[in-house]
Design a protein around this nucleic acid. Structure first.
Lengths: 144, 144
DNA sequence: TATAGAAGTGATAAATATTATTGAAAAGCT
DNA sequence: AGCTTTTCAATAATATTTATCACTTCTATA
């Protein structure tokens, strides 16, 4: 598992390779995402980045997240509600989702599925497992 | 596996139980969803329902889908893009998703995962597997 | 170091998607 | 029938996302 610093270096390297400029905004947005473990929405990322760069534009956040997704550094995840959420953890991992409040946690699943390379004509390349349930908080509220 | 007719009867029964009225619009929207196997967006459902009820409102479609989800007859699925998609197949099944165009197909997976009832404090009750790849159409476009 | 050109940014407008509100119609009850 | 409650559809309002454009910054090359 890489740490934040290594990931940032990798980001810089990757940008140079592709010919993308390494702007402070891009770094800041990626860094915010690296440090957050709750799959934030675009709006939440925007608010966080603004603390460092008060003049950043929401459009830049959208654009940058799209760029980062294109080069494979972040993933767009969308389960509940209507706004897109992002995740900088691109390694093989799965999600634990609360059906009540929508909270999402990462999980490592030791069990592996063997997916055929070809499925109903689709050329497959990855999979993810979403496990649904009630988070601790919603369990106790339930009892009321 | 139930057929469309049985599912519609079940819908009527369930509505009566809960005290919901069985309106032509509700029936039409549910029927459209039962007959479509491509996880349509709200907009697509709306277009389809309009063929039968030209004066139906988009807002009605939103409301009805929300109601149907609440009583457990449809599921909201959301993977790529920004608009919600719905699925009337509420039985245990999984999804095959095209990373390029967002097309979603159902799959039966013979492999089973055994999920602990308790995971990181969550009380789990179900899971779903999303397999990602390229659909046949996008594969051939890719080669251009 | 001057400068042309590409890429990136911020502000705002435009486009999409979703939800709330409101008055009317329908259904239930007596 | 009259009254109350629920549901309806259309409109308006809000939220989310994307496009546009003038301006800035970076890079490469002279």
């Amino acid at each position: 598992m890489q740490n934040t610093h290594e990931k940032l270096e990798f980001f810089v390297k990757k940008c140079k390779e592709i010919g993308l400029k390494i702007t402070p905004q891009r770094l800041a947005i990626y860094e915010v995402l690296l440090k957050s473990y709750n799959h934030p929405t675009v709006e939440e990322i925007y608010e966080e980045v603004k603390k460092m760069y008060p003049y950043v534009s929401l459009a830049t956040v959208y654009r940058t997240l799209e760029t980062l997704e294109k080069i494979g550094l972040v993933k767009r995840v969308c389960f509940w509600g209507n706004s897109a959420r992002y995740d900088a953890n691109t390694s093989e991992h799965h999600h634990l989702i609360c059906k009540k409040c929508g909270r999402i946690e990462d999980i490592d699943l030791d069990q592996k599925l063997s997916i055929p390379e070809n499925l109903q004509g689709f050329k497959t390349d990855s999979y993810s497992v979403n496990i649904y349930g009630l988070c601790p908080k919603c369990q106790s509220n339930q009892q009321v």
